[in-house]
Design a protein around this nucleic acid. Structure first.
Length: 477
RNA sequence: GGGGCCGUAGGGUAGCCUGGUUAUCCUCCCGGCUUUGGGAGCCGGUGACCCGAGUUCAAAUCUCGGCGGCCCCA
């Protein structure tokens, strides 16, 4: 039994374990074990991410250890990370001459090599990505998939371009890519330009994807950074232009971590457990035979026949012939988020039919064996996705409200909602909002989602009355 | 940085104050019988006092140290 989802923090903690996503008993704070089932979800979700990136990025691998001398080169960057770096200080018993950092992110591992790879304009644009673990010494309370000391599944892409404008185009491309990814997962997102004080250390600007969790806090599930030539100057990454001049490259980097899976679980799940979109469900279809004594043979035969047919279609299908009772099996596979369930009992065996039920709906219906076709199942998958998306959007909408005074905004955030306000770009006004609401300024909208209507992009700053932009404010993870 | 709380089977717990037989209960797990259309029942079984030192005839229980975890405040 799960705690109700209304008690989100407890629900999340439990579902991670009960659905066998992670084992949280590893004896180091902030490090967790991926269980086989959880790892399958990870694999399915990340293969989509790979598919999207492989369109025009190359996958690479850079080392996990970064010498202190490289990590410290870019002033802003190191300032942003120095208090959370894990250091390797010894080789065996010998202290190292140059300490080695476990990558908190890979800019400083990659860019010295980019300098070697990039010689001429013909080498540009360079677009690579890797999916690796990164380490951050989190001191606040850690949480599986959300706040980790070892991020196990950091997809980071890095690109280099001829100009600021070309890099900016790439930022837009990356945003498009991430939209496609999260649309695929049916997870709604808000796209903000982070305020200057909250941008990636070393970046020109940062665009972030935030989703709204069931408890009304926002979770950052993706970031895209325009690095301009900041790192290029530090790492001396230059190329020869067609005219024979030398110029610094302009770079971008963008990342998504296993927080995408935290959002997948949290946004779609319910009191009974996970609800997974068909494409990323480790078990897409489960068949439950209902065996009465003396009448097993027919039921088993039809179940087996259906199992073979679905396997031939290429689905991840499971025939649960364990000796638990049917009810217990329903609960078990609902917990695991299996999108489609087929039940076959003596009645169905008699008539050659199958009872069908979807994970997100209560109703059951039946079809004949022949009516269950690949086309039908594809259609169900599509409809499920649409229902999940609609439900998620309704949830998100219910937690969003516009404010034109700080007290009401503070109240709303206190009660765990996401507030929209108009805010100018000054740091002072941003600080006033954060201090008065105990929330975080997420930034102004980079673009408004199509499911939000009736919001004007510009208005009077809630603090100073100057020119302001529609801005999100919320408690964050 | 300051303060507080807690470590008992895989998970959750009782016992600790006031030291004393085979360490409680639920769950999970294993075996058997029985059952199967929304978490069945009965019988049997495996499995634990965080580590170290001290006090004592005797320590899960008291003391000190270590390690680990959680919470609050700044």
């Amino acid at each position: 039994m799960l705690p109700p989802k209304q008690n989100f923090s407890e629900w999340f903690h439990e579902i991670i374990q009960q659905a066998e996503i992670m084992d949280i008993r590893y004896p180091v704070k902030g490090l967790y074990v991926w269980c086989p089932f959880g790892f399958k979800i990870r694999q399915l979700v990340y293969s989509k991410l790979r598919e999207l990136l492989d369109r025009d990025h190359d996958e690479v691998y850079f080392p996990a250890l970064i010498p202190e001398t490289e990590l410290g080169k870019e002033g802003e960057h190191i300032k942003g990370f120095e208090d959370e770096v894990f250091w390797v200080t010894h080789g065996g018993l010998e202290p190292l001459d140059v300490k080695l950092a476990l990558r908190p992110t890979s800019e400083t591992a990659m860019y010295p090599i980019f300098k070697l790879w990039i010689r001429s304009h013909a080498d540009l644009p360079l677009k690579v990505y890797q999916i690796v673990n990164t380490f951050r010494y989190e001191t606040k309370h850690t949480r599986p998939l959300i706040r980790l000391r070892e991020i196990t599944s950091f997809k980071e892409a890095h690109t280099a371009h001829r100009s600021y404008e070309e890099a900016e185009e790439q930022v837009k491309e990356a945003v498009k890519l991430y939209k496609e990814f999260y649309d695929f997962l049916a997870i709604p997102y808000l796209i903000f330009r982070r305020p200057d004080w909250d941008k990636f250390p070393g970046a020109d600007y940062t665009i972030a994807f935030d989703t709204i969790m069931p408890d009304g806090r926002t979770l950052q599930i993706g970031t895209v950074h325009h690095l301009a030539d900041n790192f290029a100057r530090t790492f001396d990454i230059k190329y020869e232009t067609p005219d024979g001049d030398h110029a610094y490259v302009h770079q971008t980097c963008y990342g998504i971590s296993e927080r995408c899976i935290a959002s997948l679980i949290s946004i779609h799940g319910d009191d009974l457990g996970l609800i997974l979109p068909f494409e990323v469900a480790p078990v897409q279809i489960v068949i439950i035979p209902i065996l009465y004594r003396g009448r097993e043979a027919q039921v088993e035969e039809l179940s087996r026949k259906l199992f073979e047919k679905l396997k031939d279609y290429g689905y991840r299908v499971l025939l649960d012939d364990s000796d638990e009772r049917p009810g217990a099996k329903y609960y078990k596979w609902e917990l695991k988020g299996v999108p489609v369930r087929f039940e076959i009992g003596p009645k169905e065996a008699e008539t050659g039919t199958v009872v069908i039920s979807f994970r997100d709906e209560k109703k059951k219906f039946s079809l004949s064996f022949e009516e269950i076709t690949k086309e039908k199942i594809e259609e169900w998958a599509k409809e499920l996705k649409q229902r999940l998306r609609n439900r998620a959007i309704e949830m998100a909408k219910s937690k969003i409200k516009f404010f034109d005074n700080l007290d009401d905004l503070a109240n709303w955030i206190e009660q765990r909602g996401v507030g929209f306000v108009y805010l100018c770009s000054s740091t002072e006004c941003g600080e006033v909002v954060e201090e008065n609401t105990k929330g975080s300024v997420l930034g102004r909208f980079e673009e408004l989602p199509d499911w939000l209507e009736g919001f004007e992009y510009k208005g009077k700053c809630i603090v100073c009355g100057g020119e302001g932009y529609l801005t999100g404010v919320a408690k964050t993870y």
